[in-house]
Nucleic acid binder design. Structure first.
Length: 328
DNA sequence: AACTCAATCAACCGCCTGGAT
DNA sequence: GATCCAGGCGGTTGATTGAGT
């Protein structure tokens, strides 16, 4: 007997989310908090599977998500973390608090894999031994001793490469490596529908073009958010909240209440400072707290310790990572 | 302008895990 | 211990977009 579907497939909508659905979902989560996804479709009236709601929230609507181009620094971190952790995107994402696992996975599959295949040379930090031996050779094909030795070598190489990549001129590397302990002040990220402000702008833009077919518009929710982000971005840069002609908006009643909410993060420039209590709640929820602070610092020490035999008595085995980060 | 093809990425699918009973 | 169920995760798909011809 097969496993029953997570939700009743009949009448469940699929495909891209419309701005309306986004707003309904965000508004519901603002009120009830994330979690109990099973109840979300029934309580909101969304014709979506609970999984779809959760995915939409975690990958797109959650506050503090940065989208768009990956910086070289992020790229390097992903490469090295992938070498260390394998395709455990959620674990990797916990080191890049503003990126989702899906985003990282996509970026890896579309960009970094290609770089991997390129002959070594330009990517000096990306060496065959680091990437291929650890990820493509099955441990079962070699003896345990050999495999462990190889793993140690790989880890050492990864450490070395990570150190090379992130230091010394990139001192922000250490800070950014901290997994989701708090949001770090980055260069102004492109936040999309992460705030009700953005949602409001989104809806505004969306309602201005009601003639566009919903499918096209929904398919371009991303672009809508892009525009929104761009607008709010420039507005916040100017230091003045956008007070656009909201009068021109013809807002349907169910959405009105949204706009009296406080922003999740009224300015994207420093999320940690501007988070509302709700946003803090979401922040806590949004990413797994990979480790306790102490464990993290151990990990950092280990990661950046270039000379493990120089009297440091912390070892890999001492780092009690949670389920995301065991190396074997 | 029209067409083809590759790249991108949001979303889905199915498996796994862990908690509840 | 067995079973059920919700949530989480990674792999994959398919619609859209943009570049090239």
């Amino acid at each position: 007997m097969g496993r029953p579907p997570c939700c009743d497939k009949v009448g469940v909508k699929k495909g891209p989310w419309t701005p309306e659905e986004d707003i309904i979902l965000v508004s519901y989560i603002q009120e009830h908090g994330p979690g109990n996804w099973r109840a979300v479709p029934t309580n909101t009236g969304l014709l979506r599977c609970s999984k779809s709601c959760r995915l939409r929230w975690t990958n797109y609507l959650r506050p503090g998500i940065k989208r768009g181009n990956f910086t070289e620094h992020e790229e390097k971190m992903i490469i090295h973390l992938q070498a260390l952790l394998g395709n455990r995107w959620a674990a990797i994402a916990s080191y890049l608090p503003q990126r989702t696992d899906n985003d990282i996975k996509n970026y890896w599959n579309t960009h970094l894999k290609k770089k991997l295949k390129k002959p070594q040379g330009s990517e000096g930090y990306f060496r065959d031994g680091l990437s291929s031996s650890s990820s493509t050779t099955s441990p079962k094909q070699i003896s345990r001793g050999q495999w462990e030795r190889r793993l140690q070598i790989d880890i050492h190489m990864a450490k070395q490469a990570l150190y090379d990549a992130l230091s010394p001129e990139k001192s922000s590397g250490l800070a950014e490596l901290k997994p989701s302990i708090g949001y770090i002040s980055y260069a102004k990220p492109r936040c999309y529908a992460s705030s009700t402000e953005n949602i409001a702008e989104l809806l505004k833009g969306w309602m201005r073009n009601p003639s566009k077919p919903a499918s096209k518009n929904s398919a371009t929710t991303q672009q809508s958010f892009d525009n929104v982000a761009g607008m709010t971005d420039s507005a916040s840069k100017a230091g003045t909240p956008r007070k656009e002609d909201t009068s021109s908006m013809e807002m349907s009643e169910p959405f009105e209440s949204l706009f009296v909410f406080e922003s999740f993060d009224s300015s994207n420039s420093d999320i940690s400072q501007s988070m509302s209590p709700e946003a803090s709640l979401f922040r806590d929820e949004s990413k797994p707290d990979l480790t306790a602070q102490g464990q993290l610092s151990l990990l950092e020490k280990w990661l950046f310790d270039d000379s493990p035999n120089q009297g440091n008595d912390y070892q890999l085995s001492d780092i009690k990572l949670d389920e995301n980060a065991n190396f074997v």
